[in-house]
Each structure stands twice: as C-alpha cells, then as structure tokens.
Amino acid sequence: MTDIARAAGCSQATVSFVLNNTAGMKLSAETRQRVFETASALGYAIPEAATAPIPAEMPNRIGIIVDQIATSPEAVQAIDGLSAAIQERGGLVYVGQSRGDSDVEARLIDDFLQQGISALVYLTIFTREVTPTAALRNAPVAVYLLNCYTANQATPSAVPSEIAGGQRSTHHLITQGHRRIATITGEIWMEAAQDRLKGYRRALATADIPFEQDLVFEGDWSTSAGYEATRKILALPDRPTAVFCQNDRMAVGCYQALKEAGLSIPQDMSVVGYDDEEIARHLHPQLTTSVLPHRAMGQWAAEQILSGTEARASGMTKVECPLIIRASVAPPRP
C-alpha cells in the first residue's frame, strides 16, 4: 500500500480504503480507478473484493479534532451543537484533543479513519487562520473547519461574524443616545479583538461620531482587566456615558469598578458585553451582550455533513452574533 500510495499521489489510508472497499468513504470513481491502475502497473494483484459493489454506507460517524477543549466553554458548545444533530440521525461523534501537536493530530485522524468516519471537523478555540497539516489535507473524507479558516478558503469553514457583532453592539448604544462611548478590547493581536474593534469604529463612523483613540483601552479578556480599564475610564476629564466591553468577563470587572465608584448601571453608565456567558444573566442588572455562536457553527457543520456537501466545496461562512438586549443600557442622563 505504501508503494501504491507513493506512485498514485495519495495517502496510504486512501489506498487501504479502495483495496478493502471500505463503506462510508466518499472517494471519487477517478481516485479508485487511479489506485487500481497504479497497483496493476506495479505488479500487484487487485483483490476481488476491491471491485465488488460498494457496501451500503454505515450511519454517519464524525471525527472532531479540537486544539484545546478545556480552555473555555465554547468548544463544548460547538461539539454539542454538532453531535446533537448527528446523533438525531443515528450517527456517532468521536472527539479528540490535539493541543496543537501535529503528530497527535495525525494519530487521531488515523484512529478516526479506522472507526469509519465519513467526515472530519477541525475546531480551534481562538478564531484564526490555519495551515492544515499533511494528515488533514490528505484525509480521504470531507473536512470542515470551525472557528478557523485557510488563507485560500479552499476548505469549507465557519467563523463568527465579529465585525458585524462589534458594530451592532456599538450601534445599540448609539441608538439609545450615547455619543461618547469607550471600549475595552481583548488582547489586540487576536483576530476577535481586532474585528470587534473594527465593528466599533464602523458604528461610530456610520453615525458621524469621531473616533477617539483615548477611549480605547486594551485588556486581556479577564475580569481584572475590565476592572482596571474602567477605573481609567472614570478618571477621564470628559467621562464617557457608555462602555462596550468586548467580552462578558471584562464586563463583570467593569460592573465592580462602577459600583465601587458609587455609579448606577445603566442610569450613570451603560454597559454592553460580548459572548453571552451564563454570568451575563446573573449580573444585576442583567447584561446586554452578543452571542458567540459556537453552537450554531457546530450545527452548520452538521448540516453540511448531513446534506452530503462535498469536501471540495470551498468558502467561508460567517455566522451571526445576535445581540441579546437586557437591562444594562439606557439613555444617558440629560
């Protein structure tokens, strides 16, 4: 099989699936024929079973590789969204954590293929561009990317629509009458922070509100960063009337700093978060925030798999981050 794979320009796994006539593998007739012709040219006998009618497909079996599972709840939500849809159709979902190790990833893919998966989903915790490893590129099944994408977008992917989410959050504050709006970003090297800031700037520009760099405070997504940034915001000579915290954990710190300063939310300061973590519903007042759509992205992947979309279909799908309006925003005081 190693000889045939090298000469045919495919993976050894592909040769194995062709010669064993493995059910559930979405291999083209051209690929099968190329393997047969290469095997014959090299002098190998082709097993009779390899050319028999392909067995009926087994129920969908899907493999999911995650770079980090335990870092945040988002990975679990994406997996749950995908697995619920697959299991409703009698399928099975296998999950493995690679920790960004290409060797571990290759072994996981091999193990998943031995289980007869018909599709592979690659999920990252942070939204980013990825360069697929050889094992992922050569997998003989459909491959989908969640929360990441390739530079040429040759592999179908789904990512949050972060720019639109940041714009919608800021626009909501503007519609309530706020004109001086501060924002606390995440670590600015991350795409999520960059895109949410772009959305903030677009909303200001659309409303003819000048952008002020002095109203942008860089955080690190943590509660303490939200607390410290809010203290700086309150020390400004011309204090803003609203704060867009670019995740809910920083919004928790913002709440604490505002309340220590004796200010009421939203009467003295309106606050918007992002991510819609469970804490947002338990703050007082409840936090207006945007949904980070990992569950919806998992459901998107399931829809692609169940609809039989070919792995060679390309393009990036941006999944909406809906704004959940609660009680933390009100018009500024006259």
Rank of each mutant, 00 (worst) to 15 (best):
residue 76 V to G: 15
residue 76 V to N: 11
residue 78 A to M: 10
residue 78 A to G: 15
residue 78 A to C: 12
residue 80 D to M: 08
residue 81 G to R: 01
residue 83 S to A: 11
residue 83 S to I: 01
residue 84 A to W: 00
residue 84 A to K: 13
residue 87 Q to L: 02
residue 88 E to H: 09
residue 90 G to F: 06
residue 91 G to L: 04
residue 91 G to I: 01
residue 91 G to D: 11
residue 94 Y to E: 11
residue 95 V to N: 12
residue 95 V to M: 02
residue 97 Q to T: 14
residue 99 R to T: 00
residue 99 R to E: 13
residue 100 G to L: 05
residue 100 G to C: 03
residue 101 D to M: 02
residue 101 D to Y: 04
residue 101 D to F: 01
residue 102 S to F: 01
residue 103 D to C: 02
residue 103 D to H: 12
residue 104 V to C: 09
residue 104 V to D: 06
residue 104 V to E: 13
residue 106 A to I: 04
residue 106 A to Y: 05
residue 108 L to G: 05
residue 110 D to Y: 00
residue 111 D to V: 10
residue 112 F to Y: 10
residue 113 L to R: 01
residue 113 L to D: 10
residue 114 Q to C: 09
residue 114 Q to H: 15
residue 114 Q to Y: 06
residue 115 Q to K: 15
residue 115 Q to G: 10
residue 115 Q to E: 15
residue 115 Q to F: 08
residue 116 G to F: 07
residue 116 G to S: 10
residue 118 S to F: 04
residue 118 S to W: 00
residue 118 S to V: 00
residue 119 A to M: 03
residue 120 L to E: 07
residue 121 V to W: 01
residue 121 V to A: 07
residue 122 Y to P: 00
residue 123 L to Q: 07
residue 123 L to T: 09
residue 123 L to I: 11
residue 123 L to R: 07
residue 124 T to K: 01
residue 124 T to R: 06
residue 124 T to M: 01
residue 125 I to S: 13
residue 125 I to C: 00
